[in-house]
């Protein structure tokens, strides 16, 4: 169920100037210091190491990768919860690092956050009404009537009706799907322009996932939201976002539209991910899956050159293990960071 709108392809391969692109991530580096006993420094965890891309309103982008690849850190930096050590998040032309505290609070009201664990995301000692009032109170909506009105409106959008029935309930009284709707409602209540969703359905039952993903898609279309999905599940991604970015060891190694990535995967890691993702098919029993050996590298001392090279069957010695590959464009609108495509 790909998007019917043909949005303009918006992938840039180099740093953009400060245009009025809605959201621009520019050469973002987010490192965490490792403390040693006493006062020594043991190095840094290079969680995000040079990520750049743009996103416009009304576009949905999925960032796919395994655990430890840095996608969660990237997401939290976009949310303003971590500070980059280099590079920046540029929102409507303004650098996040230059925001004052008040501007930062405004920015946070512009970004909605949908978390992975619906139960953990809701304070267990508050009822649904309190949970939804909190963001409003914090952002200065003092009139109780106005708050209730907004809650009603947003609940109708997430299809939790009758609203009065749900307001006094506590999180443990709701099903997983309902809890996630409350989380989405909370993310939407400040009328954000950007929505960040971290594995929004991975902890829900299979039968409920589609409902929730449809809901998110509907909200995106209705409110012309920019959406960033973080996930490790390639099968769902295609249905709900235009673009898919593949992340590995702190870098984005491939960027393409959904259909394009699945039809013409380029990077060996992407190929591995796709072949490891099964569809329900009885023939799977007959063959073994082809999995690259080894594990993702440590982010404290990542490998030289291309970070995937120790596991890559098609590695070019002398090149892949020495220099980090830049982005190549083998197909229009399809970028890949791999030396195999250096002639593109």
């Amino acid at each position: 169920m790909a998007s019917k709108k043909q949005t303009k392809v918006n992938i840039q391969s180099v740093q953009t100037e400060l245009s009025d692109t809605f959201l621009s991530i520019q050469d973002l580096h987010v490192w965490f210091e490792l403390r040693k006993f006493g006062f020594g420094r043991a190095g840094y965890v290079h969680a995000v190491d040079g990520v750049s891309f743009d996103l416009d309103r009304g576009e949905a982008l999925a960032i796919v990768g395994e655990s430890g690849c840095g996608k969660t850190t990237l997401m939290k930096t976009i949310l303003g919860l971590y500070m980059p050590v280099k590079g920046d998040v540029v929102y409507k032309g303004n650098r996040l690092s230059e925001y004052s505290n008040a501007e930062m609070r405004w920015y946070r009201s512009q970004v909605g956050f949908v978390q992975q664990d619906p139960y953990g995301a809701l304070p267990p000692f508050m009822n649904v009404q309190r949970i939804l009032e909190e963001p409003l109170i914090i952002n200065g909506v003092k009139d109780k009537k106005e708050r209730l009105e907004r809650i009603h409106r947003v609940f109708e959008e997430v299809k939790m009706t009758p609203v009065e029935e749900f307001l006094p309930k506590f999180p443990h009284m709701l099903s997983g799907g309902q809890q996630q709707r409350v989380v989405i409602a909370r993310a939407m209540i400040l009328n954000p322009k950007l929505l960040v969703a971290d594995e929004p359905v991975s902890m829900l039952d299979a039968s409920v996932r589609v409902e929730i993903l449809n809901l998110l898609r509907g909200l995106q279309e209705k409110h012309h939201l920019a959406v960033i999905y973080i996930t490790h599940d390639l099968s769902t991604v295609r249905y709900f976002s235009e673009y898919i970015f593949v992340m590995y060891a702190g870098e984005i190694i491939e960027k393409a539209t959904g259909d394009d990535l699945l039809k013409n995967p380029c990077h060996p890691y992407t190929l591995a991910l796709l072949s490891a993702t099964s569809d329900p098919d009885a023939k799977n029993v007959e063959k073994f899956q082809d999995v690259p050996p080894g594990e993702p590298p440590s982010l404290v001392k990542p490998p030289e050159g291309c970070r995937f090279h120790p596991r890559c069957k098609k590695m070019i010695p002398g090149l892949c293990d020495v220099k980090r590959p830049p982005e190549f464009q083998p197909i229009k609108g399809h970028l890949v960071s791999c030396w195999l495509f250096k002639d593109a």
Binding site: M1, R209, V210, N214, L234, S235, D279, P280
Partner: peptide
Amino acid sequence: IPRLRSTSKLDF
């Protein structure tokens, strides 16, 4: 079940 390799409409 969402499938990688086909484009059938998803049901729930």
